[in-house]
């Protein structure tokens, strides 16, 4: 709890400091945990909310994830055509690739593509 300021300051330090800091934080946590009467119900409610909001947040991700893929493909296609002078082809190929990427992004976010979903879920 009151380790907040220390945690913020320890951010840009080296890894050894991180390990030291987390050890200290853990010690503090066990000390606090010992003195605390019991886990307050409000605390449990706070723990539950991130799950609920993140599923709504995930729903909002899907559409933009797809659009962003198409836009990225379009921009890449435009740049390729501009630099290499391959007028229509760069745009055609990369826009389709962007479309595929959009679908792939959506699949990944919604968890259709196996193990990668685990990492991207949160």
């Amino acid at each position: 709890m009151s380790g907040g300021a220390a945690g913020g300051g320890g951010g840009p330090e080296k890894a050894s400091d991180d390990g030291d800091l987390s050890a200290r934080l853990k010690r503090l946590e066990t000390q606090i945990e010992g003195k605390r009467p019991k886990a307050a119900p409000a605390d449990a409610a706070r723990k539950a909310t991130p799950g609920a909001t993140s599923s709504l947040g995930q729903a909002m991700r899907l559409s933009t994830e797809f659009i962003a893929g198409v836009i990225a493909g379009g921009i890449l296609g435009y740049i390729t055509d501009h630099l290499l002078g391959t007028k229509p082809w760069g745009m055609i190929v990369l826009l389709m690739l962007g479309f595929v990427t959009g679908i792939y992004n959506v699949m990944r976010v919604s968890g259709f593509s196996g193990h990668k979903a685990e990492k991207d879920r949160r």
């Binding site: 962003a68 836009i71 493909g73 990427t101 992004n105």
Partner: peptide, 20 residues
């Protein structure tokens, strides 16, 4: 190539989502 485009689409999706 899909992963590369996917990586490049990240800043776009991040910014477009918030702004939109």
């Amino acid at each position: 190539p899909i992963e590369i485009v996917s990586f490049l689409s990240r800043p776009i999706s991040l910014s477009v989502r918030l702004f939109a």
